[in-house]
Amino acid sequence: MKKVLISVLMGSAMAVGASAASAATLDDVKAKGAVQCGVSQGLPGFSNPDDQGNWTGIDVDVCRAVAAAVFGDAKAVKYTPLSAKERFTALQSSEIDLLSRNTTWTMTRDTSLGLNFAGVNYYDGQGFMVRKSLGITSALELDGASVCTNTGTTTELNVTDYFRSHNMQLELVQFEKSDEVVQAYDSGRCDVYTTDASGLYAQRLKLTNPDEHVVLPEIISKEPLGPVVRQGDDQWFNIVKWSLFAMINAEELGVSSANVDEMKESTNPAVRRLLGLEGAFGEALGIPNDWAYQIVKQVGNYAEIFDNNVGPDTPLKISRGVNALWSNGGFQYAPPIR
């Protein structure tokens, strides 16, 4: 009942909460002194609170980058944990300024929900996890399986499509919260746990015996995950978009949180533009000119946020793969700052 109530409140907030969308989000954010950022309810590597309530993760770092750009202070973020189901309503009704919660960029979301995707901070795809003891090696052997997953996600749609197109029977068991999905899978309710591959690696850590489970080789969908804002506020959209691009460009230019101060001496014009030493790029966004310097200094470049949160030295042990820079054969590519 509480969920219904929240949704009703959100709905009526949307109905009555007048022209919130057209108001400048940047002004609101400055007035509040913090970016209100919608994140997950706990997905290691992406957005996860520790026992003191400090949030970390690659999605959280996008929030922090925006705060660093606007305030020169990466800590000026307030987090709103959201289930997959709640996230878009929360953004539409202006409860949050920015949604950075492993959210897949799809056409419906981009067009009919009144939202804009500001880029991709992690290229993902949907995968399957099963018990090793089943002896299964391919997703095509899953005919008749029970599959546990989250409601309100692209996941449930992809898996239905996949089973249908391969003429396989499917029992889909859908929970609202990820923790229940993990528990139900762990207690044997389902043969298969499906979600974004990154999510599988993260959630596997929560199982009783992570080693007894394998992720199958098939990736059945494209899941470009990125930050989302409301339509109708181009300035705020630009700020979020370029905060992400700044981190990717910084990696490409070899600028990291460790060397950003030395790099101020660099003669490379691209580096000088990035760090706000030439041109007035911040001004054009309505924020200080050292915006990108603050991002790299306080949060890091893209390689750093990847390695710190999901990389090979973290429990998730994910390699760069398609998330490498375009110059290294991956998909990460940011338009130039000029």
Binding site: S7, M10, K85, T108, L113, T151, E156
Partner: peptide, 13 residues
């Protein structure tokens, strides 16, 4: 539950 899924897929809260 079903309505929630529909809400999410269509965005029509």
């Amino acid at each position: 539950s079903v309505g929630g899924t529909v809400l999410n897929q269509t965005g029509q809260a």
